[in-house]
Simulated scan of single mutants.
Amino acid sequence: MWLLRFLLFALIIFLIYTAIKFVLNPKRKLELAHEQKRYYFLDDKNNVRKNFLITYKGVLFEGEKYLGTTENAFEVISIFVWPHKVSALQGLVREDFLFIERKILEGYPNAKIDWKSPIKEFMKKEHPSETPFQK
Rank of each mutant, 00 (worst) to 15 (best):
residue 25 N to M: 04
residue 64 E to C: 07
residue 68 G to A: 00
residue 79 I to Q: 05
residue 25 N to A: 14
residue 20 I to H: 11
residue 64 E to R: 12
residue 84 H to D: 00
residue 37 K to T: 03
residue 82 W to G: 11
residue 33 A to V: 01
residue 61 F to P: 00
residue 39 Y to W: 06
residue 73 A to P: 11
residue 30 L to P: 11
residue 79 I to C: 02
residue 81 V to M: 09
residue 64 E to K: 15
residue 27 K to C: 03
residue 83 P to E: 05
residue 54 I to R: 06
residue 78 S to A: 07
residue 21 K to H: 07
residue 32 L to Y: 13
residue 58 G to K: 00
residue 56 Y to Q: 08
residue 49 R to V: 15
residue 52 F to C: 10
residue 29 K to E: 00
residue 36 Q to D: 04
residue 24 L to M: 12
residue 59 V to E: 12
residue 52 F to K: 02
residue 78 S to I: 03
residue 19 A to D: 13
residue 18 T to H: 12
residue 79 I to K: 09
residue 75 E to T: 06
residue 78 S to T: 09
residue 35 E to F: 15
residue 41 F to T: 04
residue 41 F to K: 01
residue 66 Y to L: 10
residue 51 N to S: 08
residue 27 K to L: 08
residue 77 I to P: 04
residue 77 I to V: 09
residue 79 I to L: 01
residue 24 L to Y: 13
residue 21 K to E: 15
residue 70 T to V: 01
residue 68 G to T: 01
residue 28 R to F: 00
residue 82 W to M: 08
residue 62 E to A: 10
residue 51 N to K: 14
residue 47 N to V: 05
residue 47 N to I: 10
residue 65 K to G: 05
residue 26 P to Q: 02
residue 67 L to K: 10
residue 55 T to R: 10
residue 31 E to L: 15
residue 43 D to R: 00
residue 52 F to Y: 03
residue 77 I to T: 10
residue 69 T to A: 12
residue 78 S to F: 06
residue 70 T to M: 01
residue 55 T to P: 13
residue 60 L to D: 02
residue 49 R to W: 13
residue 26 P to F: 02
residue 68 G to V: 02
residue 22 F to A: 10
residue 75 E to G: 08
residue 20 I to M: 11
residue 62 E to R: 14
residue 40 Y to D: 03
residue 30 L to E: 04
residue 24 L to G: 11
residue 63 G to H: 07
residue 40 Y to W: 04
residue 75 E to V: 08
residue 69 T to E: 07
residue 43 D to K: 01
residue 56 Y to G: 06
residue 84 H to P: 00
residue 59 V to G: 01
residue 54 I to T: 01
residue 18 T to F: 13
residue 75 E to W: 04
residue 53 L to I: 11
residue 82 W to N: 09
residue 76 V to R: 03
residue 39 Y to H: 02
residue 57 K to A: 07
residue 23 V to N: 05
